[in-house]
Simulated assay, not measured.
Amino acid sequence: MTINLLSKNAVSLPAHSEPKTEILRPQFWSTYTLDELNHSEWEALCDGCGSCCLIKFMDNGDDEEEVEYTDVACKLMDCATGYCQHYATRQHYVPDCIQLTPDKVPTMMWLPEHCAYKRLYKGQALPEWHLLLTRDAVATQQQMRAANVGIAGRCVSETGILDEEMEDRVVTWVTP
């Protein structure tokens, strides 16, 4: 089996030169396809778990069953909060950060099973704890923790971690 270390860079949403403030259409996630979403709707799908920003081992492509996540995160990740420290300008710091777009979702089945982008692409509903459903950030955070979702408080920065150490950092708490 050939194991390839996926890029040490985060996955990000499309970068736009100007922030857009667009209205979230009611139940947009169940009414429109991913490629029909406006920028604000696309961004609202992200649950902020940070799992896509973890370094992964992949065997032969993008198959969800051939990926192992590590607890090592992109250098921009704040491992205490689970949020990118420079989200709006992340491409400046990590130029080869993979941008998540509707046309790339089919080739990114390694995204975690709870990922809204992956779930909607596969015709599944949002997780019951998703902010779009709960409309309560505190409840969402509590339910995500209860569901064992998110990297906040359980990842380390890639800064200072040697490639040789990565195999010892594989975790099972992220399920593709």
Rank of each mutant, 00 (worst) to 15 (best):
Ile3Thr: 14
Leu5Gln: 13
Ser7Gly: 15
Lys8Tyr: 10
Ala10Tyr: 00
Val11Pro: 03
Ser12Asn: 07
Ser12Lys: 07
Ser12Pro: 03
Ser12Gln: 07
Ser17Gln: 12
Ser17Lys: 14
Ser17Asn: 14
Glu18Trp: 07
Glu18Ala: 14
Pro19Gly: 06
Pro19Lys: 10
Thr21Val: 13
Ser30Tyr: 00
Tyr32Glu: 02
Thr33Cys: 00
Asp35Gly: 09
Leu37Arg: 01
His39Arg: 10
Ser40Val: 01
Glu41Val: 02
Ala44Glu: 03
Leu45Asp: 01
Cys46Gly: 11
Cys49Gly: 14
Ser51Met: 04
Ile55Ala: 13
Ile55Glu: 04
Lys56Gln: 12
Lys56Thr: 08
Lys56His: 11
Phe57Tyr: 15
Asp59Phe: 06
Asp59Ile: 09
Asp63Ser: 15
Glu65Thr: 14
Val67Glu: 07
Glu68Phe: 07
Tyr69His: 11
Val72Trp: 05
Ala73Lys: 06
Ala73Val: 07
Cys79Gly: 14
Cys79Asn: 15
Thr81Ala: 10
Gly82Gln: 03
Cys84Ser: 11
Ala88Asn: 12
Thr89Phe: 04
Arg90Thr: 12
His92Met: 14
Pro95Tyr: 06
Asp96Gly: 08
Asp96Phe: 08
Ile98Phe: 11
Gln99Val: 08
Thr101Leu: 06
Asp103Tyr: 03
Lys104Asn: 09
Lys104Ala: 14
Pro106Lys: 03
Thr107Gly: 15
Trp110Asp: 13
Glu113Asp: 15
His114Ile: 06
Cys115Lys: 05
Ala116Trp: 02
Ala116Asp: 06
Ala116Asn: 04
Arg119Gln: 01
Lys122Cys: 09
Gln124Lys: 10
Ala125Gly: 01
Leu126Trp: 01
His130Trp: 01
His130Lys: 04
Leu133Arg: 00
Thr134Trp: 01
Ala137Asp: 02
Thr140Val: 01
Gln141Tyr: 03
Gln143His: 06
Met144Ile: 03
Ala147Asn: 10
Ala147His: 06
Asn148Ala: 13
Ala152Thr: 01
Ala152Ser: 13
Gly153Leu: 07
Glu164Val: 12
Glu164Ile: 12
Glu167Val: 11
Val174Ala: 08
Thr175Glu: 10
Pro176Ile: 01
